[in-house]
Simulated assay, not measured.
Amino acid sequence: MSLSLEKILSEIEQLTPEEQLTVMGHLVEHIKKHINQAQSKRKWSDLKGMAPYPLLGEDAQEWVSRTRQEGDEHRERLLRGEE
């Protein structure tokens, strides 16, 4: 632990409980700002390309059913040696 941190903690211990709560509240708000800033750096464009094109404009359940059926048909053709 650094000397400056030890000094700060020692000074905080000398405060009244109400003042210590004020210090705690200040620290919580300060940390929240840093967390919010880190989260706000994320952009929707970062998600680009995560979902394949067919998902756009197609009902999710229909897409799942269709791709499962296509996969099954493809596997059957492979097992029969058609491809």
Rank of each mutant, 00 (worst) to 15 (best):
residue 44 W to L: 13
residue 21 L to R: 11
residue 25 G to I: 03
residue 79 L to D: 11
residue 56 L to F: 00
residue 78 L to W: 09
residue 75 R to N: 12
residue 39 Q to A: 12
residue 48 K to H: 11
residue 82 E to M: 14
residue 6 E to A: 07
residue 77 R to K: 15
residue 37 Q to A: 14
residue 52 P to Q: 12
residue 71 G to R: 06
residue 63 W to C: 00
residue 81 G to D: 04
residue 6 E to M: 06
residue 30 H to M: 13
residue 35 I to G: 08
residue 45 S to V: 04
residue 60 A to W: 15
residue 44 W to Q: 09
residue 7 K to L: 15
residue 81 G to F: 03
residue 62 E to W: 05
residue 47 L to Y: 02
residue 78 L to G: 03
residue 39 Q to I: 09
residue 83 E to K: 10
residue 52 P to T: 05
residue 73 E to Y: 08
residue 17 P to K: 06
residue 32 K to V: 05
residue 66 R to K: 15
residue 9 L to G: 04
residue 6 E to K: 07
residue 83 E to A: 10
residue 28 V to H: 14
residue 80 R to K: 14
residue 5 L to V: 12
residue 30 H to E: 11
residue 44 W to N: 11
residue 1 M to W: 12
residue 34 H to I: 07
residue 80 R to D: 11
residue 46 D to Y: 03
residue 16 T to Q: 01
residue 73 E to W: 08
residue 55 L to R: 01
residue 79 L to A: 13
residue 16 T to V: 01
residue 25 G to A: 10
residue 26 H to V: 08
residue 29 E to L: 15
residue 44 W to R: 09
residue 30 H to A: 14
residue 49 G to N: 03
residue 75 R to Y: 13
residue 33 K to M: 09
residue 69 Q to E: 13
residue 4 S to L: 14
residue 66 R to T: 02
residue 36 N to M: 11
residue 45 S to K: 05
residue 32 K to E: 06
residue 27 L to F: 08
residue 66 R to L: 11
residue 3 L to E: 13
residue 45 S to M: 02
residue 54 P to M: 01
residue 13 E to M: 05
residue 24 M to W: 08
residue 64 V to K: 07
residue 20 Q to A: 02
residue 79 L to R: 15
residue 69 Q to F: 13
residue 80 R to V: 02
residue 1 M to T: 04
residue 42 R to G: 09
residue 51 A to G: 06
residue 76 E to M: 07
residue 71 G to S: 14
residue 52 P to S: 12
residue 18 E to G: 05
residue 61 Q to R: 13
residue 54 P to I: 03
residue 20 Q to W: 04
residue 32 K to P: 02
residue 18 E to C: 05
residue 3 L to M: 15
residue 40 S to H: 04
residue 19 E to Y: 00
residue 47 L to P: 00
residue 28 V to Y: 08
residue 10 S to E: 12
residue 6 E to Q: 13
residue 52 P to V: 07
residue 60 A to I: 09
residue 51 A to T: 00
residue 48 K to Q: 07
residue 37 Q to K: 13
residue 64 V to A: 10
residue 11 E to L: 05
residue 16 T to Y: 03
residue 35 I to K: 06
residue 34 H to R: 14
residue 61 Q to E: 14
residue 69 Q to M: 13
residue 63 W to T: 02
residue 24 M to D: 08
residue 53 Y to V: 06
residue 66 R to C: 09
residue 70 E to Y: 10
residue 62 E to Q: 14
residue 26 H to W: 11
residue 48 K to E: 05
residue 76 E to F: 07
residue 7 K to V: 12
residue 74 H to W: 10
residue 74 H to L: 13
residue 58 E to N: 09
residue 20 Q to C: 00
residue 57 G to T: 00
residue 26 H to P: 00
residue 38 A to N: 14
residue 18 E to F: 04
residue 65 S to H: 08
residue 68 R to K: 15
residue 65 S to I: 12
